[in-house]
Every structure is written in structure tokens, then in C-alpha cells.
């Protein structure tokens, strides 16, 4: 591998992503696991920067670290005995098999266009900008139906959460 800024960045972000992931699965404290997850998600945001997708990097930080990690923190804090949960389940063989199978599926999915992806030699030369993304989101031949479905899904999530929480407190 050629030693330039991108390859150094790749190594640094890989250390963040994998190190955070190792932290998540090895710590026995759920709260510390959440912090490690944020480190891992930050590394993924760095990958998006290296792939010339700054908007997705910002989304990764805002939504995953800013919102989803906070929700996980709250969920951990809602559990009754936060740090006293002794999670010590060691199932080495099943977890190794599961992670190996997932790795192989993802490897095939990335290297071969079997999930409807585009192979590297057919990829467009120009990188789609945020403006192209916005135009495709509301284009009648593009992604307007998923775009509006996302809004329905968000509405449903919010109404459902309020309904369940109200039922709990009433």
C-alpha cells in the first residue's frame, strides 16, 4: 500500500472502528460499551470522509453518535442496575461461526455485485454530490416513495414510543 494521507487515514480509522468494536464486546460494563460504540461509529464516519462522502460523514456523526448512541445510553440508564449487570456469557464457537459467516457475506457483497451493487469497473467516474442526492430523493423516477415512507416510519416510531411510554406511566 502506498503511504499517503489517505492510506494513513484509513489505518487510523480502521484502528478506531475495530478497536471500538473490540471494546464493545470485551467490556463488561454496558455504559462503557456504549462509549466504545461511539468510538467505532466515529471510525466509520472517517471512512465516509475517505470515500469523498462528507455529507454521509456528517450524517454518521449527527445521527449515529449524536442521536442513536444517546438513545442507547438512555436505554442503558433505564435498566434497573446499570453497572451491576454481570454479562459474562462466553460462547466462543457460536460467536466465531456467526461473525465468520457475516464477514464472508459482507466480503462477497463488497467484492462482487451480487446484491445488485455496481462492480468497481462500472462505477461512475464522478462522485454524487449532496445536491444530486437531494434531487434523486424527490424525483418521481428516483426515490420519492422511500423518501415519503421514511417520514411515515419516523411518524410511526414517534407515536409508538409516546403511546408505550404513556401506557407505562398511567
Amino acid at each position: 500500500m502506498e503511504l499517503n494521507a489517505i492510506s494513513i487515514g484509513f489505518v487510523v480509522f480502521t484502528i478506531f472502528t475495530l478497536g471500538g468494536g473490540i471494546g464493545v464486546v470485551t467490556t463488561r460494563n454496558l455504559f462503557q460499551g456504549t462509549i466504545w460504540l461511539m468510538v467505532s461509529l466515529f471510525g466509520v464516519a472517517g471512512y465516509f470522509v475517505l470515500l469523498s462522502a462528507p455529507f454521509l460523514a456528517a450524517v454518521q456523526i449527527l445521527v449515529y453518535i449524536g442521536a442513536i448512541a444517546i438513545l442507547i445510553t438512555f436505554a442503558v440508564m433505564l435498566t434497573r442496575s446499570v453497572t451491576r449487570i454481570k454479562t459474562r456469557y462466553i460462547r466462543l464457537v457460536p460467536s466465531l461461526l456467526a461473525s465468520l459467516a457475516l464477514f464472508l457475506i459482507l466480503l462477497l457483497g463488497v467484492t462482487m455485485p451480487i446484491f445488485g451493487g455496481v462492480s468497481p469497473e462500472h462505477a461512475p467516474a464522478t462522485v454524487a454530490s449532496t445536491r444530486d442526492l437531494g434531487a434523486a430523493l424527490v424525483d418521481e423516477n428516483g426515490y420519492v416513495v422511500p423518501f415519503l415512507l421514511a417520514s411515515v416510519l419516523l411518524t410511526g416510531a414517534m407515536i409508538g414510543a409516546i403511546f408505550i411510554a404513556r401506557d407505562d406511566t398511567a
Binding site: L62, V63, F74, A165
Partner: peptide
């Protein structure tokens, strides 16, 4: 549990912003 509801409502509008930003750019 109220903290969680606040967090979830925040998440919903966070994701809304994510969708609306490219929309506004185009």
C-alpha cells in the same frame, strides 16, 4: 422513561434534518 421519549423525538427530527438537507441543496 421521559428522557428516552425526549431522545427519540430528538432522533426523529435529527433524521428529518438529514433528509431535508439534500432536498434544500437541490
Amino acid at each position: 422513561v421521559q428522557y428516552y421519549i425526549y431522545g427519540l423525538i430528538f432522533l426523529v427530527f435529527d433524521v428529518e434534518m438529514v433528509f431535508l438537507f439534500p432536498w434544500a441543496a437541490a
